[in-house]
Design a protein around this nucleic acid. Structure first.
Lengths: 214, 214
DNA sequence: GTCTATACACGGATAGAC
DNA sequence: GTCTATCCGTGTATAGAC
């Protein structure tokens, strides 16, 4: 337990920090609490990270990557043939995508709550404010890709500029998520999510192929 | 500066706490920082509040009342005659209402940021979690009243159950606000807000009066 | 009733022992 | 290189002086 250390330890501490933060909140994630969770001595902290702020930076990056790992399709991979173009019902595709997101939220509420906490923590620390901005730029990007995928799978196209739709969609889901994290009202959340899904369907137009291969 | 005290001091401390929180964030609003801001001795704190948690409780209540004070109409009162029924253009009414909200956000970004911070702070403290829930129940209520007002002023009615629309609307604005607070991108926010406004217009149907008074 | 002085616990960071 | 012991600052709460 001696040689294999420098970067290994860092990972260990980041994971421990995330566990503590999910369990007790960002405020409770002190250096002492983190090293205790990792089963390391307090001293280990300061030759892995210059300061606590650096740990937070790493934690935020890690959380962002996790969001990326998440399946970006409706119900997982759709087979070796890839997505079916054209004849998947539009409503199904939209609802499937949103449903998959929502399922992740419902299964890991604390992790999502942590995301919001981290964003605000970052906004308050001058050195980390840019990280928060980068976080949301990234999420907007992911949102945009999701919308592209929806269009592709349903054989349709968006009738609005994608960047606008991506920001709106991110915000809508963000708001719905936050609201649910607070009151945990499944029915209300579900109804509101459906409302959003129906709105999205409204904004899709079947792609008019000049001529089918007849 | 001696006699007039008990409740008076409390108000003084709550105001000071809010100022500190807006300026430096909730985490920096320590008992010492708050009494310093209020120009009071440290001892003053603990015979006004049993503990810091009580102060936070009061602060949250105060902030909620402020939100209530805000004008709930598009451009202030619309005269002694009250709202005009029927012939106000629907799009105008919707955009006016949303625009008024957005103007408040743009003018007091820090105050709105504080709202989110307080919610999360409350969610983490067992004794305050219910307060956070009450906060959102209240905001949902306000959202619902706004929607009613929009319908009334534009002489139309909503084609969806109001509670669902109220939750969705609250979440959408919440998300858009949070996103803007992070990146301060006015153009992107404005475009996304318009998207939401157009969606709302879609959900309004002119009220079919059996017969006009001809 | 109002405020001062202080006790106590905790968090971040470092100097130096092994 | 790894960890222990400790310093200093800060936050909460209280005992008791005015």
């Amino acid at each position: 337990m001696s040689r294999r250390s420098a970067d290994e330890r860092r990972e260990q501490l980041i994971d421990a920090a995330i566990r503590v933060m999910i369990r007790d909140g960002v405020a409770k994630a002190t250096t002492r609490a983190v090293v205790a969770e990792a089963g390391l001595p307090l001293g280990a902290f300061h030759y892995c990270f210059r300061a606590k702020e650096q740990l937070l930076h790493s934690v935020i990056e890690r959380i962002m990557l996790r969001a990326l790992d998440a399946p970006d399709g409706p119900d997982g991979p759709d087979g070796p043939d890839g997505p079916v173009f054209g004849d998947a019902p539009v409503g199904e595709v939209v609802r499937g995508t949103l449903g998959a997101y929502w399922e992740r939220v419902r299964r890991n509420p604390d992790e999502h709550l942590l995301t919001y906490e981290l964003t605000q923590y970052a906004l308050r620390k001058p050195g980390l404010a840019d990280v928060a901005r980068g976080q949301y730029r990234h999420y907007t990007e992911v949102s945009l890709r999701q919308l592209e995928t929806i269009a592709r799978r349903s054989g349709a196209e968006w009738t609005l500029p994608l960047p606008v739709l991506a920001r709106y969609g991110l915000s809508a889901l963000d708001g719905l998520t936050l609201n649910w994290l607070i009151d945990r009202d499944d029915e209300a959340a579900s109804a509101a999510l459906d409302l959003y899904a129906n709105h999205l369907v409204t904004l899709l137009r079947p792609v008019t192929e000049p001529a089918a291969v007849v």
